[in-house]
Amino acid sequence: MKKIIFSLLLLVNGAMVFAAKPEYVQMMSGVLQKMKDAKSIEALEACANNFSRVAAVEKEEWLPNYYTAMCYILETSMLKDGKEIDAKLDKADALITQARDISNSDELLCLESWSKSTRIGVDPMTRGMKYGMESAQLLNRATIVNQNNPRIYYLQAMSAYFTPEKYGGGKVKALELLKKAQGLFETFKPSSEIMPNWGKEQNQAMIETVTKEMNGSTDDTATPNNRAPRK
């Protein structure tokens, strides 16, 4: 019985992929390219607006909301005011919640986890415990859905990097997770060109940073000034 449901689900899923309109895919990949090149808040905001215009039309697709939220999360790395960062993340979280009504993709759990861990940076002393835990739990849930998603381990590595060794974090642990993510990035194939496929380069860059730091200094943790993983 389980198998039948499973294959039915696959079928429906597959059908939906096929059903995606070509202009939708074309529009999404166009904006994705712009998002990759975006270097300012204004550019990211333009992409977010563009994705949300698509979301307003394609009410059955979760990716437009996913990417809009991701733009907002990326924008926070260029903001300093905690209030503004929270406002962006509030918007991102609302979109992720909307998207989760459509899909239970592990990618949405990863993105939500990233959003939670970004909130820590606003006030590490009072937020570390609450959001750190929520963020970790979301990644744990993502492993249930798809344990081969490399972004899970990349995000875990980032939070380990900013967590002192005494609390189960540290650079050694971070590197271990980054290596695991590296292996999975090698084999990861998104099911379509517009599905989430980010993180490989950042993961590689982090491996180099951490390796260098471990060879160079005795410092065991990083300062939690900006916890958002770089894009």
């Binding site: 202009e23 529009m27 204004e42 905001e45 333009a46 215009r53 307003a56 039309v57």
Partner: peptide
């Protein structure tokens, strides 16, 4: 700056500049 202008029912639209 950054206002999302869209044509309802389509992907078409733009973001206001500086």
């Amino acid at each position: 700056i950054g206002v999302n202008v869209s044509l309802i029912g389509s992907y078409d639209g733009a973001t206001s500049n500086v």
